[in-house]
Design a binder for these strands. Structure first.
Length: 423
RNA sequence: GGAGAGGUGGGUGAGUGGCUGAAACCAACAGUUUGCUAAACUGUCGUACGGGUCAAACUGUACCGGGGGUUCGAAUCCCCCCCUCUCCGCCA
């Protein structure tokens, strides 16, 4: 949620920024919010005035009653009683305005950072960096969905039987490979100074709102109505919400957390030929890094987090590229996002394996996540997160890129974790 | 799932209709004292939304788990809900 004070003080700047997202009516949205807030303020001032009068009278009545002057108190009581309809009217009006204001504010996505290019879709993203040679595969090479059958390491049909499409069963070396990657990613994050947490994988509604999945992506999450709980689409949700309603001290910053969780996404209506195999799943594994920083540090930290993700890809010997997302392709909450894509040699495609974002104060505002600065002022922090990394597409690329007649080679860095160097 | 107890400021905890935004203590912060540390003493010490101001000072309203109600007036009385704890049951 954007700050009202920001929208008021830098209205034009906000509108210009939002235009980069290719929004239909950025100006209208901002104007509406400010209009509602103006009305809200006015209504509150009126209401507060009447309430102040009531409070004054009530005190007078109390005094009179104490000195047994009931006959003098009675006219005052009637006077106050007469104000009550007006109070009720104004209170209702205020509640409505506040709710309208909140809804309107929730509809406005984060303002992209200055360096974010305008654009409509993924076409307009900028390749900021590319690393590693594109592999050329021998004749007869297979896409990963064939390889997993050939080596019997991941079984989609079994998953369909017990759960449904998009819920694969990892078997044998396939299962071990998952575990190896998770541990490798966690260890690397620990080396980079991230403190590990293992959060719940279902969250309540307040958490969904805290990080902005609600109300924006309601339909994307699995929901358990009986208990009012959501299955997490990413560890970002529980980990960042750990710090909801928290005021940190400067000494505690930056907060660096890493966590492994399964992630669940309904992905309604997004299936097709391009999402075969491991390319898109309802349940997948991911290691997520989260940082909470002072505002002035967040963009340096964004770079640091990207560098961490890139180092993982390099250690896994996967060719990758780093994209600076354009306004139109960025997530709702983000001010700036870099995507990391690995090249999947048999599919001849780039696959997104990580998304690293700076949310600035957009999430912190909803989370009421603040810190006391040196001068004792409480102010909002910046939140950032990134996948480090999401497993399925990494597995797809590892399988495809490292295949040969002799089997699938495991990158040396993983061998201590898998216990085998070949599938 | 059944029974009971309870939810007050960073913490402990008083407060059963007006003098309570809330005692006291602890923690924290600033200062004084002190060779340093400690101790002692003094002061400060909630949040949100308004008004006001260059900025302050100052000032209004709301907030004692959440929502509703009674009343001139509610932390305090009534209703509903949520949560936590203890015991029992079930159980990885």
């Amino acid at each position: 949620m954007l700050l009202l004070s920001y929208l008021r003080e830098s209205r034009q700047q906000a509108i210009e920024g939002l235009r980069k997202r290719n929004l239909k009516d950025a100006e209208g949205m901002v104007s509406e919010v400010i209009r509602l807030d103006d009305e809200r303020k006015e209504t509150q001032t009126q209401l507060d005035k009447i309430k102040a009068d009531i409070n004054t009278r009530s005190r007078e009545i109390g005094e009179l009653m104490k000195s047994k002057q009931n006959d003098q108190a009675n006219p005052l009581r009637e006077e106050v009683a007469g104000w009550k309809t007006e109070v009720k009217t104004l209170e209702d009006k205020l509640a409505l305005l506040e709710s309208d204001l909140r809804i309107s504010l929730y509809k406005i996505p984060n303002v992209p950072a200055a360096s974010v290019p305008a654009g409509k879709s993924a076409e307009d993203n900028i390749v900021a960096y590319q690393h590693g040679a594109i592999p050329v595969l021998p004749e007869g090479s297979l896409p990963h969905w064939e390889l997993i059958k050939k080596y019997d390491i991941i079984d989609f049909d079994l998953g369909v039987k017990i759960s449904g499409a998009g819920f694969p069963v990892y078997k044998g070396k396939g299962a071990k490979l998952q575990r190896a990657l998770i541990n490798f990613f966690l260890d690397e994050a620990a080396k980079a100074g991230y403190a590990e947490v293992m959060p719940p994988i279902v969250v309540n509604e307040a958490s969904g709102y805290g990080t902005g999945q609600l109300p924006d992506k309601e339909g994307q999450m699995y929901f358990i109505p009986q208990d009012g709980l959501y299955l997490i689409p990413t560890a970002e949700v529980p980990i960042t919400n750990l710090y909801r309603d928290v005021i940190l001290t400067e000494a505690e910053l930056p907060v660096k957390n890493v966590g492994y969780t399964p992630c669940f996404r309904r992905e309604a209506g997004s299936w097709g030929a391009h999402v075969r195999g491991l390319n898109r799943l309802h349940q997948f594994d991911k290691v997520e890094i989260v940082q909470i920083t002072r505002p002035e540090d967040s963009y340096r930290v964004l770079d640091e987090m990207c560098a961490h993700v890139q180092s993982l890809l390099e250690k896994l010997e996967l060719p990758y590229r780093k994209l600076l997302l354009c306004g139109g392709d960025m997530g709702f909450n983000s001010a700036q996002t870099f995507d990391m894509e690995v090249f999947s040699a048999a599919q001849q495609r780039w696959l997104e394996v990580s998304s690293v974002s700076n949310f600035e104060t957009y999430q912190a505002n909803r989370l009421k996540l603040r810190y006391k600065s040196g001068e004792g002022k409480t102010q909002l922090l910046h939140t950032l997160n990134g996948s480090a990394l999401a497993l399925p597409r990494i597995v797809a690329a590892l399988l495809e890129n490292n295949q040969s007649a002799a089997g699938i080679r495991i990158p040396p860095v993983l061998v201590p974790y898998t216990g085998f160097d070949k599938i």
